[in-house]
Simulated scan of single mutants.
Amino acid sequence: MRRNKITILLIEEDPENANLYKKFLKRGEMSGEVTHASSLEEALPLLSQHTFKLIISALFLSDCSGLETFHRLRKAAPDTPIVILTRPIDEELALKTVSQGAQDYLPKSEITAQSLNRVSRSAIERHTLRESLKALTFTDELTKLYNRRGFIALTKQHIDLALRQKHGFHLFLIDLDHLKGINDTFGHLEGDKALVKTAESLNKNFRISDIISRIGGDEFAVIAINVPHQKGHLLKNHLLEIVKEWNATKEQPWQLSLSIGTAYFDPSQPTTIEKLMKLADQEMYADKKIHHEK
């Protein structure tokens, strides 16, 4: 069975070394598809136009040298693992790049087909593992939505983006009513089903680009991106309609009921995510009180 070639960007100014490293990577276990750049000036446009599985770069180039080479590559391709090739006298500098995010380094005097392929393979595997662990720490295992940690991190990033682009957004806090009653009456497995069904309803109502999260036991939060201030209530009403339609199917012995609070982030009057959540929380509990009085 033919393996998919691994795309590699090799940055090395010495043409003899570059040809040798390309030969090693193409014929070794990596079976790499290697693109060569002889300078950072050549490399940066390639990084903006293509996606590579790995960057292998010398630290000293004709147009950039030392840690600056690594920092500029990292900035241009923050999600791509980097292996640094060093001169024997630069090992201490190479260790600094690893401490600052490079996956590994390899002294040029020690490069063989075996060592270059081994270091490259390990760098990709470690990076893949780290990304999968990062996804786990940001994802709620039951619903597959973002968890609280993911929600806060992504929302803070989006606030910065909203301020730059001058676009507001809506925050929805959503509480699944009567979860304790479902657990006590029908068992925790049914309670889990109610949480998953709530998540499905949120995914149906909001867009893939929105930040949809389960931030607590029975509490969910959504950042609805680029929705005009006056249209937030339409999303709330549509969500309630989705829940109403599902309840009408009587698929389960219990019914879904949601209490919803909203708050709007206005880039002309910026606030923190904590204050925004407090406003939405107050409205959500007012909504919950209405449900209890019915």
Rank of each mutant, 00 (worst) to 15 (best):
L240Q: 14
A221P: 04
V243P: 09
T198R: 10
I223P: 01
I215D: 07
S213L: 07
V243E: 08
K204P: 00
G232I: 00
R214H: 07
P228V: 01
L202P: 03
K197R: 14
H238N: 13
R214I: 06
V222T: 07
A194E: 07
F206M: 06
D218C: 10
E200I: 12
S201F: 08
G216S: 15
N226D: 15
R214L: 04
T198H: 11
I225F: 02
H229T: 02
L235Q: 04
V196T: 13
A221E: 03
V227H: 03
G216W: 13
H233T: 10
G232N: 06
G232L: 02
L235M: 11
H233M: 09
S209P: 00
V243M: 11
T198P: 04
I211W: 03
R207D: 02
E219A: 09
E241Y: 13
A224K: 08
A221D: 03
L239W: 06
I215K: 08
K204W: 06
V196G: 05
P228A: 06
L202T: 03
K244V: 00
I208Y: 10
R214V: 09
L239T: 09
N203W: 01
H229V: 01
H229E: 12
K197S: 13
K204E: 12
A199M: 08
I208P: 00
F220V: 04
G216P: 11
Q230E: 14
I211F: 06
Q230V: 07
I211R: 05
N203T: 09
D210Q: 08
S213M: 06
K197M: 12
L202S: 07
N247G: 11
V243Q: 11
E241L: 13
R207K: 14
S213V: 08
A221V: 07
K231Y: 13
E200S: 14
N205Q: 15
I215M: 10
V227E: 03
V243I: 15
N205P: 00
G217N: 10
H229D: 05
S209T: 12
V196L: 09
A221R: 09
H229R: 14
I208F: 08
N205A: 12
S209L: 08
P228E: 05
F206V: 02
H238S: 12
S213H: 08
N237F: 01
S213A: 15
A199N: 09
N226L: 11
G216T: 12
I225M: 10
N226S: 15
L235R: 00
H233W: 06
D218R: 13
H238A: 11
K204H: 14
A224R: 07
N226R: 15
I208W: 03
A221H: 09
L202A: 07
H229N: 10
W246G: 00
R214W: 05
N203D: 04
K231N: 14
N203K: 15
E241T: 15
G217C: 10
I212A: 01
I242A: 01
G216Y: 13
E200R: 14
E219H: 12
L235I: 01
I223C: 06
I242L: 05
A199F: 09
E241I: 04
G216Q: 13
V222L: 06
W246L: 11
K231A: 05
I212P: 00
N237Y: 00
G217H: 10
T198E: 05
V222P: 03
A224W: 02
V196D: 01
L235T: 00
V243F: 11
E219V: 11
I208Q: 13
V196W: 04
L202E: 03
Q230S: 12
F206C: 03
H229M: 10
N203R: 15
